[in-house]
Amino acid sequence: MLQFLIKRFGQSVILILIVTLITFFLINLAPGGPASMMRMDATAEERAALSERLGLNDPIPVRYGKWLGDAVQGDLGPSLSSGQPVMDRIVERFPHTLKLAFWTIIFSVIIGVVLGIISARNRNTWRDHTINFGSVIGLSIPSFWLAIMLILLFSVQLQWLPSAGTGEGFVGQFKSMIMPVIILSTATLPTIVRFTRSSMLEVVSQNYVRTARAKGMKEKTVIYSHALRNALIPVISIIGVLIPRLLSGTVIVESVFGWPGMGRLIVEAAQSRDYNLVMGVTVVATVLVIFSNFIVDIIYSKVDPRVKNIG
């Protein structure tokens, strides 16, 4: 286990380094510069002064070296657009994204597993077909379009749900999360449904389940006591795959619903060429994805007796 941890950690560090390298060069090569230098009415002298202040006059590799040197010491530098430490800006925004992601996973795992079981138990019946049909539709609708349509219906027409913001108070927060979570779930729910379904079918066809049936156990008992437990184990692994997808989804969802999270932050940062902020958000997001995959793997190895040696 320890060896696995060390190996995994080493790989993660290399991965993060590569991501920072690519991102740094990409964003610094972008035409234009930090937004403060990009006002219509700024004069050449003002731009020169700002460029000097922001330390943009060094060659890009030198700046990368400096950035990396500070970053390993935990200093992601100041945001070029507000002067705040990048870490502060991320810490401000991160909880909102975490909140959305957390509830989306909870929501889509619960609903997804239930639908997946229904689908598997009733395979090739209208129930199965309807659920499958719904899954495909979920995967096919552009999420922002669906979001706008929902806003038109629930916020504009019916005025039941707020069209933007995170809401105030328990009820307010709950209401403002309904639409974003539903939209985010369209990316994760169908995958979980399909995965649960095929996992169930596979387990059901296995020997021990057949044996249980042969012994004359009731179908329900077979399904719920034997099959389900084993079928759900692989579902854990799919969550690891869904996390990066979820993060991508937040970019869109946060933009549509004015949700103050990391997804919107990266778009703002890239557009305003806030180099430090782009780097900071990318690094934190990468660390997060790697870390959560890591946790998922560990849980998986604990609960699945078949996985004896991972890595």
Partner: peptide
């Protein structure tokens, strides 16, 4: 296992 949509956004900006 990286948030590649983030990278894609940055890449398109550039």
């Amino acid at each position: 296992s990286i948030p590649n949509f983030f990278l894609a956004l940055v890449a398109l900006t550039v």
